[in-house]
């Protein structure tokens, strides 16, 4: 069991990767914590002052620089901070990095990682609450990781770098806060990279989660247990590769399914899970439920914002709804 917060764990993982391989550099000033945890990356700057490049406000430029550095011998980790800013770098992340290995018929690799603080983080309003992960899933050639626990933050960075694939790290601005309340080291079992983890075994209903919804889903599952509903929580861990097998096996066993996903409903991560379950002909006792953010831009004002978030309460209600 890892005794550190999620925030500490991810810095430790990056530091370890940098100690192991001097080709690993950071572009973007080690902004792993966003504006609420500005000093989170400070130990990295201290230990590797010449390997952390602070940048101008030029997401497209510096992500492109990382692509070029990666294909010529470095292993850049780019910190974009708030994930909404990644839209400024869209041409490089969507239209260059994932196509290069394919278009050169396997001759040129782009071993880089882009770290994003996604999510509805309270008071981010429509422009600082982005959840772009499903858009990335529409981009063949991009690996997408979404560690939800401190343990996973520690064990998933190195294999993602070792894969030499352009990788997007879907982090969540509230994961660090969730850790502070002590819910980070849930069932810290080691699972192979690219495989989903069963965070909590259960026999009545399968709850598919990743990132922040893993934390909320595990809390909801405990409350459901008190009501006599035995929930199996499947944490996807990586969105590409997507471990459909574990989802199908679990849903086939429990015959009930809820998918909790902070993306907007339409064509979100949950839509792909639901489609896979339907396509595989899993015989569900009741129609599955998707617990997503509605197809609405995110409001600034707190009551409106809370109304839209796929919260622990709403996940619990969805679990009750499929029984």
């Amino acid at each position: 069991m890892v005794q550190m917060t999620f925030g500490e764990a991810k810095i430790a993982a990056v530091a370890q990767a940098m100690r192991q391989d001097e080709r690993v550099i950071i572009i973007g000033g080690a902004a792993f914590g966003g504006h609420r945890y500005m000093t989170l990356g400070a130990p990295l700057v201290q230990e590797f002052p010449k390997r952390v490049y602070a940048t101008p406000i030029a997401e497209l430029g510096y992500v492109g620089v990382a692509v070029g550095a990666a294909m010529t011998g470095l292993r850049p980790i780019v910190t974009v901070s708030t994930s909404s800013f990644v839209y400024e770098a869209w041409p490089q992340i969507i239209n260059e990095a994932p196509n290069i290995y394919y278009m050169t018929a396997g001759q040129t690799k782009v071993p880089m990682m882009v770290h994003l603080l996604t999510g509805i983080r309270t008071a981010g309003a429509a422009q600082h609450s982005a959840r772009p992960q499903a858009m990335f899933m529409q981009t063949p050639g991009l690996q997408i990781i979404s560690p939800a626990t401190a343990e996973d933050a520690l064990v998933m960075v190195q294999p993602a770098l070792d894969s030499e694939r352009p990788t997007v790290w879907i982090d969540h601005a509230l994961l660090m806060e969730e850790d502070i309340r002590g819910s980070s080291s849930v069932q810290g079992q080691q699972t192979a990279f690219g495989k989903a983890a069963i965070r909590r075994a259960g026999k009545d209903v399968t709850l598919v989660t990743y990132g922040i919804t893993t934390v909320r889903g595990l809390n909801a599952a405990e409350r459901a247990a008190a009501e006599g509903i035995d929930v199996e929580v499947v944490d996807l861990r990586t969105l590409c590769p997507l471990d459909r097998d574990t989802v199908l096996e679990s849903a086939g066993r429990t015959r009930r399914l809820v998918i909790a996903d902070e993306c907007s409903l339409t064509c979100g991560v949950s839509a792909e899970i639901a489609a896979s379950v339907a396509e595989a002909g899993v015989d569900l006792a009741k129609p599955l439920k998707r617990m997503n953010t509605p197809d609405v831009p995110i409001p600034f004002s707190p009551l409106e914002e809370q109304e839209l978030i796929p919260s622990e309460d709403k996940i619990l209600a969805a679990l009750r709804g499929v029984m």
Binding site: L60, G64, V65, G68, A69, L74, T108
Partner: peptide, 30 residues
């Protein structure tokens, strides 16, 4: 492009390869 001639990739997007070339220069300096 011709990776074996140290032309590792060509973007056909106007401006697509420019920051990438800057990145290759960063590798050289770093």
């Amino acid at each position: 492009c011709a990776p074996e001639l140290n032309m590792p990739y060509n973007s056909a997007i106007v401006g697509g390869n420019l920051p990438i070339a800057v990145g290759a220069a960063l590798t050289a300096k770093h």
